[in-house]
């Protein structure tokens, strides 16, 4: 068995409160980009990886990040802690003769928990904000890498299922009108199925064709997507 580990200290996430001083109902979002340091508290996090197989094909990872306060330094809110944690699984096996190719299975589940806090509304009432969001995905890819055909060996077939469970509307929805909101698929809980076909032009660039079906509480939206991906 093999273990990997990592530990880090960084700026934490930032709590953003929208429409706090207007007649609109306030809402909140969490800015995960930590290029900005909004208070004196830091985020501490890390990951433990377990590779139980001798060929390192399977890896199970556990990760967590904790920040004792994500509110702004001068904010009226204080001591709002954030705890994020995740479990991930990866199984990558190359050159399996029985299937004439390689498989790549990946899955991850994330949870974001923010301390409950209250926002005082103009009429004196208090709006309680409780954010406990989760997201997950599972993906299986097969590449016929042992095929004698160069074209076939560069193809990769992928299936993916993912979902997100939010306790409030996404930030993008805050300013949308009712008409726009009706056709907007990024609000609240949703799940997505995707089937894709990649063609690897080189080891780090690929053309990706996929068909995705996204379901939320109101509707199901599907579409074809064509991407070009380049890694460095």
């Amino acid at each position: 068995m093999r273990f990997t580990n990592s530990l880090y200290l960084s700026n934490g996430a930032i709590l953003e409160v929208h429409d706090e001083d207007t007649l609109e109902t306030p809402s909140t979002s969490i800015n995960g980009l930590n290029f900005e340091d909004n208070n004196n508290e830091k985020a501490i996090g890390g990951r433990l990886g377990f590779l139980p197989l001798n060929n390192s094909a399977l890896e199970v990872g556990l990760s967590a990040q904790y920040t004792s306060d994500i509110s702004d330094r001068d904010s009226e809110y204080d001591g709002i802690a954030s705890l994020n944690y995740a479990v991930d699984v990866s199984y990558v096996k190359n050159s399996i003769s029985a299937i004439k190719g390689s498989i790549d299975l990946k899955a991850q589940w994330n949870q974001v928990d923010i301390d409950e806090f209250g926002i005082v509304l103009p009429d004196g009432d208090e709006l309680i904000i409780n954010q406990e969001n989760s997201a997950y995905y599972a993906q299986l890819a097969y590449r016929p890498s042992l095929s004698k055909s160069t074209f076939l060996s560069n193809l990769e077939f992928i299936g993916r299922y993912s979902g997100i469970n939010l306790t409030e509307p996404a930030e993008d929805d805050l300013d949308t009108s009712e008409e726009e909101e009706e056709g907007h698929h990024q609000e609240g809980d949703r799940t997505q199925w995707a089937a894709g076909l990649n063609y690897w032009i080189s080891w780090r660039s690929a053309i990706k064709l996929s068909y995705q079906v996204t379901d939320n509480d109101k509707e199901s939206i599907s579409g074809f997507y064509l991407h070009y991906a380049l890694g460095f």
């Binding site: 139980p52 199970v60 556990l62 802690a81 705890l83 944690y85 949870q111 928990d113 301390d115």
Partner: peptide
């Protein structure tokens, strides 16, 4: 607030570690 969550994480870590 986070005591329940810490307990969850600790439980996951312990179970996974013992299994592996």
């Amino acid at each position: 607030m986070k005591y329940n969550n810490f307990a969850k994480i600790a439980l996951i870590l312990i179970v996974t570690s013992l299994t592996l």
